[in-house]
Design a protein around this nucleic acid. Structure first.
Length: 420
DNA sequence: TCTGGGGTCCTAGGACCC
DNA sequence: TCTGGGGTCCTAGGACCC
């Protein structure tokens, strides 16, 4: 199939996290709500309901600011596992229409319906049918916006113009018009920094971007300049960043390239014991997900964010992170923690706000039993705990060392406060 | 009293090997 | 004895997405 003749759907759930909670809880329906992280006082609004958006609440606004803008807002802690489960349900619905489904994020997917729809009229009918199925199977409060265009980038941009709960079609000859009605930063791939640098070159819209000499763009942005030039023409033949495969959708299951968790502490701390405890908890969560997926890692990155009110000057928190690469891959929370702590320990851990850990350079776990008896026993304990976690959900067990209790140093098995 | 938490990809310099 | 180039790995940092 010729790439220029494709028909791509981009489906984006409206105020997704908030809609899921409103569907599940009638009390929240019709009200301004904001889905947040765990420590609400130090969190941001991950998703605002349609009602909250109407009252001025924006995504990524701090909860403090959201309450100021909208005193009646109901802040509600998010449940990422639930949102991920429901994502699988709506992707299953899409797959009943076409096998060519590419999940893009927890609430967005691309569908290539070139074969199934035949033309844009057929595509519009299919989009309506998909929305009916979503309504039937997920409920009336979880709605979607749909953009239809000849490639993924333009389908996504088209979708942005009809939020919430809209449907729009952009045919090949309408692409330049769509771009010229859009702002630079509406395009997926142009963020605040790129926009700023384009503005500095005298480029304020897509018409100017299109007419700017390609070589000059490439001198400034390297390969990204090529992409910007193509994007301004409505083409994405060789996109370096988000649309690596160009125009078509990628149906093969994308394997994760990294696993990470981070946590903003309830209060800033300079106490290494507190940081160790949280870091160990994060390492266990990461390790569990890796073992669940049957992968091991050869790199660990550990990072902290500092509270530093005196140096931030309103421009953000400073942070520090380092990585270590090693030869023996692992998915054991204890190992991950030990490596991460070796990274963080030498740093001056004063007034720390957030601690985080991630793993990368992943490969399949050969699941060969260890030669060493002690390690082999530990593997079987981990397997048993993993089985518990799989059956009863994350959080069913925790290491004694991660609990804030005076007995922690006596908990058997893990001599946490001693040499590691 | 004030910014979460999960990811992806690209660039560039240094070390090291052939 | 001097010097070049290619390839890979490692680390740090920056930009983007939701």
């Amino acid at each position: 199939m010729d790439n220029t003749a494709r028909i791509i759907l981009h489906i984006d759930m409206n105020s997704y996290f908030a809609s899921v909670e409103q569907q599940a809880n009638p009390f929240l329906r019709g009200k301004p709500i904001g889905i947040t992280g765990k420590n609400q006082e130090r969190s941001v609004v991950a998703t605002a309901s349609i009602e909250a958006k109407a009252l001025g609440v924006k995504t990524a606004m701090s909860t403090w600011e959201a309450k100021k803008v909208c005193p009646s807002i109901i802040l509600w802690p998010g449940d990422p596992e639930k949102y991920s489960d429901i994502m699988h349900r709506f992707n299953a619905i899409y797959e009943s229409f076409t096998p060519n489904v590419e999940p893009f994020s927890v609430d967005e997917s691309f569908l290539d319906i070139t074969e199934e729809a035949e033309d844009y009229f057929g595509a519009t009918c299919m989009a309506q049918a998909i929305r009916s199925r979503l309504y039937e199977e997920l409920g009336e409060h979880i709605t979607a916006s749909i953009g239809i265009a000849p490639n993924k980038l333009m389908a996504k941009l088209a979708c942005e113009t009809v939020k919430p709960n809209g449907l729009t079609v952009v045919r090949p000859h309408e692409i330049l018009d769509l771009l010229d009605r859009s702002e630079l930063e509406d395009l997926c791939g142009i963020g605040p920094r790129i926009k700023e640098r384009l503005n500095a070159l005298g480029i304020a819209n897509f018409k100017q971007l299109r007419e700017f000499p390609r070589e000059n763009l490439e001198r400034e942005f390297h390969s990204y300049g090529t992409w910007l030039h193509e994007a301004a023409l409505g083409r994405v033949a060789s996109a370096p960043l988000l649309f690596k495969e160009g125009l078509g959708v990628v149906t093969s299951q994308q394997e994760a390239k990294s696993y990470g968790h981070s946590y903003t502490l309830p209060q800033n701390t300079s106490d290494p014991r507190v940081l160790k405890r949280y870091l160990f908890g994060l390492a266990d969560k990461v390790g569990w997900r890796m073992r669940r997926d049957g992968v091991v890692a050869r790199r660990v990155t550990a990072f902290v964010r500092f509270g530093d009110p005196s140096t931030s000057l309103g421009t953000g928190f400073s942070s520090h992170g380092e990585q270590r690469t090693f030869q023996e891959p692992t998915a054991d929370g204890m190992h991950l923690f030990q490596i991460a702590w070796k990274i963080l320990e030498p740093i001056s851990l004063v007034d720390v706000r957030l601690v985080g850990l991630s793993t990368s350079i992943l490969s399949g776990d050969p699941t060969q039993p260890s030669l060493f008896k002690k390690e082999r026993n530990m593997t079987s304990v981990l397997s048993a705990l993993d089985e518990l976690q799989h059956r009863y959900g994350s959080g069913i067990w925790k290491r004694g060392a991660t609990l804030q209790t005076e007995f922690k140093s006596r908990s058997s098995g893990f001599h946490f406060d001693h040499e590691i």
